[in-house]
């Protein structure tokens, strides 16, 4: 697993639940307080072990933890850079949804060995979309649920999201856009670089 993914999980746990929790979770996972490096690669098993230990520690199911992780990635100031990169996807929430098709390629453009699952947006009409997430990273659909929800807030759009389970190995998310300009949303200034 790419270190960026592990680092994101570490950042999520320490900034949401505190450093002590990160220590107890990693110790439970048999990794004794490990600090992940964003630019190194790790065994895939480590990531699963950490997430399993986190679920057990919080007493929350895996899907909910992954969705919270997705929300965190867009809404927490610590990872503002990521929100900005996602906002480059477009002017409106619909533009952003369409940009998801390019997301794995965009990620690879920035960090050449970062592989994200294939994403495919289908427009069903009347403000309804389905997003399918490729099978490479089980549970990534739940992370996307969190990201889609938080990005809707960011754009000021009102949406309904539903994880429709797995079809032919792909996770499927149903998106219903109720209102594009529901709230003001957050500012996005092209020239203001996140520090």
């Amino acid at each position: 697993m790419h270190g960026l993914v592990n680092r994101a999980i570490q950042s999520f746990v320490t900034n949401t639940y505190g450093r002590a929790r990160w220590r107890s979770v990693t110790e439970a996972a048999g990794l004794g307080g490990i600090e992940f490096e964003a630019m190194l690669s790790y065994e895939d098993g480590l990531t699963d072990a950490v997430i399993d230990a986190l679920c057990a520690d919080l007493g929350v199911c895996r899907n909910d933890v992954l969705e919270d992780l997705g929300t965190y990635l867009v809404s927490h100031p610590e990872v503002e850079a990521l929100r900005r990169l996602l906002r480059f996807g477009g002017e409106s929430y619909v533009d952003f949804l369409h940009s998801l098709d390019d997301l794995p390629d965009r990620a690879r453009l920035a960090v050449s060995d970062l592989r994200l699952p294939v994403l495919e947006l289908r427009e069903e009409g009347a403000g309804r979309f389905t997003l399918t997430c490729g099978p490479d990273l089980p549970g990534f659909g739940w992370v996307m649920m969190g990201i889609l929800r938080a990005m809707a807030d960011d754009y000021g759009a009102l949406v309904m999201l539903e994880h429709d389970g797995i079809r032919d190995g792909d996770e499927v998310i149903a998106i219903t856009l109720i209102e594009t300009a529901f709230a003001k949303g957050r500012d996005f200034n092209l020239g203001a670089r996140a520090g």
Partner: peptide, 8 residues
């Protein structure tokens, strides 16, 4: 996008 992503 690329400038920002690469800087990060």
């Amino acid at each position: 996008y690329l400038v920002e992503a690469k800087s990060a």
